[in-house]
Nucleic acid binder design. Structure first.
Lengths: 165, 165
DNA sequence: CGCAGATATTTCAAACTCAAAATATTTATG
DNA sequence: CATAAATATTTTGAGTTTGAAATATCTGCG
């Protein structure tokens, strides 16, 4: 699978996992812990305050950034979830009148999803409240630590990423 | 909901969200991104290499740390998922012969779940491979950054935590 | 003892999620 | 043009997840 000591650091060929490997595992478990805790809190607030869910919020947020709309495949790629998953979320948001499916000229396979004016208005309000929830949950995070966190996490998320042109 | 500027820093009563609030939101979005990416990769490897799933691995891991077994409620609290959720996962692991339910003396409502010897053996092997996967995914994370990451994330996960005793 | 409230777990319905298969359409290739 | 391969999306089946309701049991109080 992977060779221990994959950075080529000096060391002897041992079979136990390295200290570095264990530190990385601890880091991952801590990410998971924070992620679950925060998601749990946000989900509950979403439900109580908006009568909605995180996945729906995520779709609205993506469409709010791309006001001209996105294809289903762009949405699923942007949210890092499966294609089939997005279909169901979009169905419900359409039923709620917050988004619409628009056929694409010259490609009858595809459709573009975009916010309705209701969806735009609703999301704009929700986004402000959502940001305040996050800021509250992260109120122990200083500006410097936030920057450090972002920098470190970026090195992880860029792992094995194709360099763009 | 929350007052802007909840740290009592100097500033004027403005309505826009603060730079700090935005930095925290970006930090949260980055956590979410890494978390989803890593979970996705681990889920796929889990499925291909072990024919199993992350939630099942998480339950086995919790029981491996508590060799004497755990109650359902302890499990769900430790994994930060709902009670009903654990029931289903445990049912499947029991069917696979990796764990057992043991009745609790003097409390017929509760049961204790613990690894079978098969479960213990299987998990011990899987845990090593799992650690190597994580270490590979985090191979750009230095020892110092891992420690910094853990420290910062702990300040977040300890937010609003009841002081013990 | 009797029984109200607390506790532990399961069941349930709805939503989310994935991977794979199915469908529909477009593009490329001979 | 025909049709194989590629692309975009939906459908499907299994599993996970939640929150609420249902069950079963225990505890404390009169």
């Amino acid at each position: 699978m992977n060779m221990n000591n994959s950075q080529g650091l000096p060391g002897h060929a041992e079979n136990e996992t390295s200290d570095l490997s264990k530190a990385r595992l601890r880091a991952w478990l801590q990410i998971l812990k924070v992620s679950r805790k925060v998601e749990g809190e946000l989900r509950e607030k979403m439900r109580l305050e908006f009568g909605s869910t995180l996945p729906r919020f995520d779709v609205l947020a993506a469409l709010y950034r791309e006001r001209d709309g996105m294809r289903m495949s762009e949405l699923s790629k942007s949210l890092m979830v499966s294609n089939g998953n997005v279909t169901g979320i979009v169905d419900r948001l359409v039923a709620e009148g917050l988004i619409v499916r628009v056929p694409v000229e010259n490609d009858r396979r595809a459709s573009i999803v975009r916010l309705t004016s209701d969806g735009e208005k609703d999301f704009a309000e929700r986004a402000l409240v959502h940001e305040s929830w996050v800021s509250d949950l992260f109120s122990d995070l200083s500006s410097g630590d936030a920057d450090a966190l972002i920098r470190i996490l970026r090195t992880i998320s860029h792992h094995n990423e194709a360099p763009h042109d």
